[in-house]
Design a protein around this nucleic acid. Structure first.
Lengths: 252, 252
DNA sequence: TATAGTTGTCTATATCAATAGACAAGTCAT
DNA sequence: ATGACTTGTCTATTGATATAGACAACTATA
């Protein structure tokens, strides 16, 4: 984020429905992600931050307390407050979006955990996306992507139950969508469409992604297709905006 | 957004730093965008909404008041509260991202307004992106994209001042980046990279995009290049998440 | 060992956010 | 006209948010 470059005077809003301490916590997170506040270095002292944002020192302390709770900062009496966390992960999105390979080089460990699965009738929306009859059976998987032990994504995906019967056990065993699809004879697939939006994290996101209330999530809705254009997977994924950014790769 | 599909019981969080009325206003906006609340139709009555979200009627009223202020809803005593606004614009992003052509069919009128321009030395970040020497002169344009009279994007873009001297007047005259670049002999260009994130709108965003405090903006950081790979433009764009979603087109 | 600079704790006060209940005012169908 | 249903307004109370000031506790360094 080019926060430093673009940041102008104001930046903090009152009586918004968003508390000042929450806004300032967001600013600090942005500052860390943008390299404005360097990793392992001390934050400016509380009084300086208070002046910078035009609020009381106690308000800054509330923001810092939230981030300490969250494990982003560490406060040491007499010394200062220090940045613990790393920059945001950059998650590539394109025609060949894959979870595991996409994060290569940025993390040492990554996998997808299957939280739950169920079979249900296809809603209109899902039937259209998968090109199947409305009301026909689909398998829904609830999954969480983890990198180095931290949750980085939370997805709900649907498959045609007829074609992919038992994919939930494959997911549980392999921890990979790509590997699971291989068991069904699909060695390669493409992303046909991705629609992107953002919203506040709801209560479920907070739990699943280990977020603090008020956090923002990026939401993608995607359809994956086989090489000959047959839709196989419909997915809605949520990413914590404070820990992940999406990098759109052009063609492949 | 598949809110209806995915929405589970909980969804509202307390003592978060985000007020309940703000969260509920967000929910209603989501509901409108997802077709959950139909356009021109009445919202459920306040008591019903209050029960649905597990809050007091007055809290719902605060949320509605904010959206009435914003022009999304219209309340009529004795009759009900009605949805005015349309669905979100779907803004395509891909190798050939163009403002005007991308919104074709969704709006009748669209253009880019030049808010201000300046010349400044290139920061490290911008010098790298444009492959020029750090500190050399760059032109910065502040622009706002408008569709049917409503702001839908707010961008800061940088060009090499040497190569694109006077581009600010071209922009002011043509209201189009594509047309302006043509004056400099660039008939076609591609998007090399796009990085995507989200955050709360800051005070400037609120003014420029005519948002209510607490709103969320999608942020893209992009580099455009000529057909032979020479970088020509570096841009940070902000989109109001409540009015715009980004649709990633695959290759072209 | 001072001293400056930092975080931590306490008290007090004012405003905002949320709940609760009651009733007024308007619309619509019967 | 009546009654059911809706939004609008008012009062009261509680807890969270934000400001203000003072001082304690701790760290580093001169």
């Amino acid at each position: 984020m080019g926060a430093k470059l673009i940041e102008r005077a104001s930046s903090i809003e009152r009586r918004n429905g968003v508390s000042l301490w929450r806004q300032i916590a967001d600013k600090i997170l942005q500052g860390i992600a943008s390299g404005d506040f360097t990793e392992n270095a001390a934050l400016p002292p509380e009084v300086a931050l208070a002046e910078r944002y035009g609020v009381n020192r106690h308000t800054v302390r509330s923001a810092i307390a939230a981030l300490v709770q969250e494990g982003v900062l560490k406060a040491e009496q007499g010394r200062g407050t220090f940045v613990l966390s790393r920059k945001r992960l950059s998650y590539p999105i394109g025609a060949r979006t894959r979870f595991s390979s996409g994060l290569q080089g940025q993390t040492t460990e990554r996998h997808i955990a299957l939280l739950s699965s169920s079979t249900e009738p296809a809603s209109r929306r899902i039937a259209e996306a998968l090109s199947i009859a409305r009301g026909s059976s689909v398998i829904r998987l609830e999954t969480r992507g983890e990198a180095d032990g931290h949750p980085v994504s939370r997805a709900t995906t649907w498959f045609d139950a007829k074609r992919f019967a038992g994919i939930e056990t494959a997911m549980a065993e392999t921890g990979s969508i790509t590997a699971s699809l291989m068991r069904f004879g699909i060695n390669d697939y493409l992303r046909r469409s991705t629609v992107l939006s953002a919203r506040h994290a709801d209560a479920d996101d907070l739990v699943d992604l280990e977020l603090q209330p008020g956090a923002i999530v990026l939401v993608t809705i995607a359809i994956n297709v086989t090489m000959d254009g047959q839709p196989i997977q419909f997915a809605e994924s949520r990413f914590p905006a404070e820990r992940v950014e999406l990098k759109l790769s052009a063609g492949d």
